[in-house]
Simulated assay, not measured.
Amino acid sequence: MALDARAFTAFESAAHDRIAGRYAEHFAPLTGLALGSLLDAVRVAAGRRVLDVATGPGVAAAAALGRGAAVTGVDVSPAMVALAQQAHPGVEFRLGDVVALPFRDGSFDAVLCNFGLGHFPEPEEALTECVRVLAPGGSLAFSWWDQPVRQRVQGLFRETIAELGVPPHPDVPQGHDTFRFSAPEAFAALLRGAGLRDVTVTEHRTVHAMPDVEALWRAGMGGMAITASAIAIQDEATQARAREVLARRAEAHRGPQGLEIPISYFIGTGQKT
Results as ranks from 00 to 15, higher is better:
G68Q: 09
G68W: 07
S37A: 15
A5K: 09
S13Y: 00
S13R: 15
A45P: 06
V71N: 00
G66F: 02
A10I: 00
R43K: 11
A20F: 13
L35P: 13
D4H: 09
T55I: 04
L33T: 01
L51S: 07
A14T: 14
A34P: 13
A20Y: 14
E25C: 04
T72S: 01
A15D: 04
R49V: 05
L33P: 05
D17Y: 02
V50F: 01
G32Y: 00
A45I: 00
T55S: 14
H26R: 09
E25D: 11
A64K: 01
M1E: 12
P29T: 06
A14G: 11
A64G: 10
A61M: 07
P29M: 10
L39M: 03
R22G: 06
M1N: 08
D52A: 03
A41R: 06
A5Y: 11
T31K: 05
I19K: 04
R48D: 04
A60C: 10
F8V: 00
A61V: 13
V53Q: 12
A64L: 05
V42M: 15
A45Y: 01
S13P: 03
A61H: 02
R49Q: 13
A34G: 08
A64F: 02
A5I: 02
P29L: 10
A63H: 04
R48W: 01
A63V: 10
V59F: 13
A64Q: 05
L35V: 10
